[in-house]
Design a protein around this nucleic acid. Structure first.
Lengths: 254, 254
DNA sequence: GCTTGACCTTGACCCTGCGTCAGGGCCCCA
DNA sequence: TGGGGCCCTGACGCAGGGTCAAGGTCAAGC
């Protein structure tokens, strides 16, 4: 009666798809003619069109196999189930659309809006790209671990930028990025830093409380990698009674 | 610094995914420690989070690889492209939802609504399920080949059902389905059939014109398979000057 | 020093829904 | 008899990993 390609074209599917349906047990293997060609009747065409109809409605083939022999009740239950799956997939893609819409805005590759705003503020204040990238990478790590605390952190960081003495220190650190590890000028930086730390301890208790030690270590490592002088600076801070960087703590007097 | 599982948990992906990204060239292989373990720095965590962010936004991994090193312009172009793909996938699933909503209504597995209405009309008129299934299978084949002509066909078929003589013949054919191939009562059926054919030739020219010969042969085969008496009936029709079944044509006198 | 359990390593097979060879047989036409 | 167009089986490939398997490593507790 029909060859496989005739059958396939009747049903509007490819020859390969028909053989696939045979392999998956959706469509029974037909008789063969004397030379081994598959030989289909009209019933196969009808069955194949039913398969195609279900498959093109987004029903997984394993499910199609069950549904072809199912009663009306089972069939309707499955339809409900498949519709639920389709709705979930649509919602998922809609969320994806929202995310990539956010990504279109540059820095927000992995950062919430408040962090993007903070980085933009750094740019407005004339801080250099290199420093901003360092900050960005650090906050990407924080945002991945503690997304719910980002608003708090960003509020505190923006307050720092509003303080002229702190901002000046930031500007001076730009030059320090190029210093060798034993540059003597770092002493002055360390002194000013300690003064700022001791003047501004408010708010940072909450900050430190939610920051896991491991994350703080990782962020310290990012800082240490960012400039040669970093290690020296941390040592000088320890001499002045403060340990750490991300999560500063006063060294208790012995 | 970090083991693979620590890195994975920082970025919120599985260990397997990290190795997969290595294999796909998205994330460079890091140094190994003395026992062969991968040893990651903070930069890897940042990079992995960027990968995860893009991947979870529905960007294919091959595309992620290109985008990580891309400039802003290229990146934005890609974003537009990905958004287009997501919209297309959403539309596709919405169409799937519509189709399975139609499927929930029974016979419409591969049939347009007007065909479902026609089959329902047969049911109302008390014609048996077996005959309705035969019709359904035949119209599934037609709908697959000539969906745009289904309204015309169904209009003509419903007119047939409205004709009392035709309807009576349909009812009488039910009994004939069980007859042997040589039952003498088929002569009377053939006579009545020819009378109906010759009384009602209007409208069917259009019908026959758009029906490909191959499809007509297939439908004839469906009919021949459906009851033993079918072949005899076709022979008797030929004796009376009509050839075929799906696409009847008058045999020209020699 | 030995075991236990939690990690780590590479390699390989599994899923969906087919597309696309590769290597060969069959049929018809010139 | 040669060529082109069918057909056959078997196998690899895609994304995005999941899930073993078989073995090496590490720290802790006995």
């Amino acid at each position: 009666m029909l060859t496989i390609s005739q059958l396939a074209s009747y049903a509007g599917v490819t020859v390969r798809a028909v053989r696939h349906y045979h392999a998956k047990g959706l469509l029974p293997e037909p008789e063969r003619d004397h030379s081994g060609y598959r030989c289909y009747g009209a019933a196969a065409a009808v069955e194949l069109i039913r398969i195609r109809t279900l498959a093109s409605a987004g029903v997984p083939l394993a499910r199609v196999r069950e549904l072809l022999g199912a009663g009306e009740e089972e069939f309707n239950a499955a339809i409900v189930d498949i519709d639920r799956r389709l709705r979930a997939e649509i919602r998922e893609r809609q969320r994806h659309r929202e995310r990539i819409a956010q990504l279109a805005a540059g820095d927000s590759l992995a950062l919430p809006p408040e962090a993007v705003a903070y980085l933009d503020r750094m740019r407005e204040l004339g801080l250099p790209e290199q420093m901003i990238e360092g900050e960005r990478d650090a906050w990407i790590l924080v945002a991945a671990q503690l997304p719910e605390h980002m608003p708090l952190y960003m509020t505190l960081k923006r307050q720092q930028l509003d303080d002229p003495a702190t901002l000046q220190l930031y500007h001076d650190l730009i030059g320090a990025a190029a210093w060798e590890a034993d540059d003597p000028r770092v002493e002055a930086i360390a002194d000013r830093l300690v003064a700022l730390i001791e003047a501004d301890t408010e708010g940072w208790e909450d900050y430190d409380e939610v920051m896991p030690d491991e994350l703080a270590q990782l962020l310290d490592a990012v800082f240490l990698d960012s400039m040669p002088i970093a290690r020296t600076l941390l040592e000088l801070l320890e001499e002045r009674g403060w340990r750490g960087w991300t999560k500063l703590e006063r060294i208790p007097p012995i």
